[in-house]
Design a protein around this nucleic acid. Structure first.
Lengths: 253, 253
DNA sequence: CGAACAGTTCGGCCTATGCCGAACTGTTTT
DNA sequence: AAAACAGTTCGGCATAGGCCGAACTGTTCG
């Protein structure tokens, strides 16, 4: 008896440094051109072209040709989910810090997009804040937005209606923090809003996200998430409860 | 920028036919010896030994040495989840039937264990039945056992207490059916009970499960799942509603 | 004690596949 | 029209890594 050939094919595709780097770069959700991806992976364009056509043939990526550019992107959320779950396993396996952390690594650990929602320390911190304020209930099994959460998110500018058919609110195991952050429709809309407010900016050529000064202020005021020198400071519940939200400032700037 | 080396390592390990076959064989949840796994994968024992030590070193498998045997098993449910999500992607990619189905393939599609719960046509059918009877509510986001479901499952011989810390009831995307079946504690306990009743037997050397004649009767009587010539027949809700459950027969044989 | 067996390690073979540069197509710019 | 650029295809090179058999350790059993 032999395993499903396709599982092997898919895993083998991911199991190459150059291809994995390109997939990783696309986990931000954007489309990138072949040349950009070649640059990301440190390989020639011809090599990249070969890799990319394999990934498309296997259905991991899709490509759209516009003008003289080929834009590649992750073919489906299922592919993103597969990569995330592989990363969770990879993070467990990690023998404690054999590879020295790179600067880039630290940036990714701090804040990154996980396909379409926020991950990393910041993603976990925002999730924790929403849970602590009683706006969201997260269990291993799933997530739920409470009525107060609906009001809060709506005031924050996140529109959760109409509820589309996609998964609404779900915990996603963060590979760097090994704690849950929010994915699904809720997670995606929150990230959208953070971009819209200019609180986060994407760093070109990667999935890392940069917190802007206004984002630093905003996260503190709305979510009581305090950031010092690029690291998230834990805020105890007492402090959290003692402050008034200033959603009005946000909505009428 | 370069992708996490560990993701590549993990994926590359899965991306080899022999190793994937062994992992697949272990997805039934049991422990198998090195020689058994070598036989599964059609490779010499020396080659298998090399593969297995790599898988253990990477944390995908664990090994326990007893007497003169080495028993290997999947190291964690997270590893199982990774393999399942990879298979979902692999199943999507499948260009419609390039590889002719093997007999074994059909058996797997019909019924198999997915680490610790029932999958395949039978898994989906049982899930559908529980949902149709109002015993379980499944959404994309998670699952829930209704009060009637608790009574039903309890009468069926599935004890759901004490609720351990593990995920209770969750939908799991079936790679062969592309529909949900139940995983988590509920899924695992149901499979346990089906074995206990002798309704299912495991086929040695694989994850495929065989339905026994009593299982065929039992599934029809309790779940109104009808099986003809190894394929599950859909049962419409009218028929389903028209029959009385015979749990008493089951409990006092 | 010696035979049988599970498992591992080692050395050598061989194939699969990643990589590049060169040459080509097609698009945009000057 | 020529130059610049995105992308692809092709040929050839180099290496990683899968595979086996042989030899070894350790356990079980006659």
């Amino acid at each position: 008896m032999v395993a499903a050939a396709n599982l092997v094919e898919v895993a083998a595709l991911v199991g190459d440094t150059a291809r994995a780097t390109m997939l990783n770069a696309l986990m931000g959700g954007q489309s990138l051109t072949a040349t950009e991806l070649a640059y990301c992976a440190n390989i020639s364009r011809s090599t990249a072209s070969g890799h990319l056509s394999k990934l498309v043939a296997a259905g991991l990526l899709t490509v759209t040709h516009k003008r003289r550019f080929s834009y590649y992107r992750i073919a489906s959320p299922l592919v993103a989910a597969m990569l995330e779950s592989s990363k969770v396993v990879a993070a467990i396996d990690m023998p404690p810090r054999r590879h020295p952390r790179s600067i880039n690594d630290d940036a990714l650990r701090f804040a990154r997009s996980c396909y379409d929602h926020l991950a990393g320390q910041l993603g976990v911190a925002v999730t924790d804040a929403l849970v602590a304020m009683g706006h969201i209930i997260l269990t291993d099994e799933g997530g739920e937005v409470t009525p107060s959460g609906e009001r809060f998110l709506s005031a924050f500018g996140v529109d959760l209606k109409p509820r589309t058919r996609r998964i609404f609110c779900q915990p996603c195991l963060d590979w760097s923090e090994r704690r849950y952050h929010i994915k699904g429709l809720v997670g995606a809309r929150i990230l959208d809003r953070l971009f819209e407010l200019g609180w986060l900016k994407s760093v070109p050529g990667g999935r890392a996200l940069q917190l802007t000064p206004s984002g630093r202020r905003g996260l503190f005021e709305i979510f009581q998430v305090e950031i010092e020198r690029g690291a998230v400071q834990p805020v105890d519940d007492a402090t959290r409860g003692g402050r008034q939200l200033k959603l009005s400032d946000l909505l009428n700037p």
